[in-house]
C-alpha cells in the first residue's frame, strides 16, 4: 500500500467497521465463547472490534512514523499482514486484564479471540490488496483516503 496518514486512518476505521462488523456478526454465534446469552457474546466481540479500531488509529500514527524511515515512503504488503501480531497481542492483553471497558478480566478465551481476530484481519488485508480497487478507482491514488 501507498498510504498517507489520513488515508490510513480512514481506511482502518471504515474497513474494520464494515468488513469486521459483518464477520463479527456472522462468526460470533459459532465462536468458542462458552455458555451465555448470545447478546452478551455479541457485546464482547463488538467491544473487541471497537478496541481494535480505536487502538488502531494510535497504531497508524506509529506506522506512519516508521514509514518515514523508508526511502520509498511505502507500506509493503507484508507489513500490512504482520502487524496483526503486535496489535493482536495488545488487544488481547487489554481484554484479558479487564482494561477494555465492558469486558470482564479473563472472560475471553484465547481460541475465540484468535479465530475472530485472525479472520477479520486477513479478510481486511486481502480486501485492501485487491478488490477495493474495483469498488473505488480513486482510493489507491489518494493514499487510502475515501473522502
Amino acid at each position: 500500500m501507498l498510504p498517507t496518514l489520513g488515508g490510513r486512518i480512514q481506511s482502518r476505521i471504515v474497513f474494520l467497521a464494515i468488513i469486521g462488523g459483518i464477520i463479527t456478526l456472522i462468526l460470533t454465534p459459532i465462536l468458542p465463547l462458552g455458555s451465555g446469552a448470545l447478546s452478551a457474546k455479541y457485546k464482547t466481540t463488538f467491544l473487541i472490534l471497537l478496541t481494535v479500531i480505536v487502538l488502531g488509529v494510535i497504531w497508524e500514527f506509529i506506522y506512519h512514523l516508521i514509514m518515514q524511515w523508508r526511502w520509498e515512503k511505502d507500506w509493503p504488503t507484508f507489513f500490512g499482514l504482520v502487524t496483526l501480531i503486535n496489535e493482536g497481542v495488545v488487544v488481547y492483553l487489554l481484554a484479558d486484564y479487564g482494561i477494555v471497558p465492558g469486558i470482564k478480566a479473563h472472560s475471553v478465551p484465547l481460541s475465540a479471540f484468535l479465530i475472530d481476530f485472525l479472520v477479520i484481519w486477513i479478510c481486511v488485508w486481502l480486501w485492501v490488496n485487491g478488490p477495493m480497487r474495483v469498488v473505488n478507482v480513486r482510493w489507491r491514488f489518494h493514499g487510502g483516503r475515501l473522502v
Binding site: E72, R140, F141
Partner: peptide
Amino acid sequence: YQGFNYPKSVWGGQLKA
C-alpha cells in the same frame, strides 16, 4: 538503487500528496 524510477509513494501515497 530504487524499485521503480521514483520512490513508490509518488504514485498514490505520501509523496504524491
